[in-house]
Design a binder for these strands. Sequence first.
DNA 1: TCTGGGGTCCTAGGACCC
DNA 2: TCTGGGGTCCTAGGACCC
Length: 339
Amino acid sequence: MARWVLHVDLDQFIAAVEVLRHPELRGRPVVVGGDGDPTKRGVVSTGSYEARAYGVHSGLPLRTAARRCPDAVFLPVDSDLYEDVSERVMATLREFGLVVEVLGWDEAFLAVDGDPEALARRIRDRVRAATGLECTVGIGENKLQAKLATGFGKPAGIFRLTGETWFEVLGDRPADALWGIGAKTAKRLRGLGIGTVGELAAADPDVLAAELGPTTGPWLVLLAQGRDHSPVSDAPHVPRSRGRETTYQHDLDDWQDVRREVARLARRVAHDVADDGRDIGRVIVKVRYAPFITRTHGRTLEAPATAADRIEEAALAALDRFTERRPVRLLGVRAEFAR
DNA sequence: TCTGGGGTCCTAGGACCC
DNA sequence: TCTGGGGTCCTAGGACCC
């Protein structure tokens, strides 16, 4: 087991990629999201640091972003481009001959020995030379520490967080500073008198097990203590499911349209999974009614299959389990691989 | 005209079985 | 006198992350 874990995280990745191909935008507030039209339904994928200064962050509705930062340049999401650039970044990381675990487009863990700061600097320089992109490197004794460290190194910095400095750095921070605790869990914890990372680290795992579940409760305590034994792994990822969903610019009122759209999404999913030849065991349909009420129903296939007809059939059968006929703003179809 | 799209994992309740 | 108890599977929903 390597002594150190590095977490490499590209700075404002999507916005940075767009600035690379539109150099005239450097230094301006750039917001990437949806189809680039901030009057439509959609959210911000990434804002440049200049945009973030106006309170424009990932997940913010585009319309709100346009109000907060009217001078921003709005651009559509170009997934294919980001995928290509991401591949180049990951290839650059693999050149170091270490175990590299990729996490999404713009993050990776590396298992390393030796002087981690020296290696972090070399990585940062290599990524910049190869792609023109800046990254931040977090250093820890495990993935959790490394991941949290990165937040303190941004932008373009290097930060080390260990068992020794964990509580000094994080002890007084709110629990949702941790990787895996969001707003909802933080609120439930506050209801139990647990506000900070330090308080969570000292909590009774049995009490949290009773409150939050047998796995989640004790895991949260370990999380707050900065403990994590999960290995850095470069094993290829085997997907569990594949789905497609669409938010409509105008709600669908006619159930005939809903049926047609579900069939279309199902065939798209079938096309997506056709190449890898793995059987589908179950199909789940998601309906988000206006204003924002989401329901799901699924259908297990009689026998696992790959044929588009079977997947469409299962999706329509799942759709039949929805009884409410109210306006629909989003439809989704997800196929789960058998086994 | 607030609130994307692609995922993963966990929980809880009911069915079912011995 | 109440009417076990445990295990597993299935399903819908919740929460989180990038």
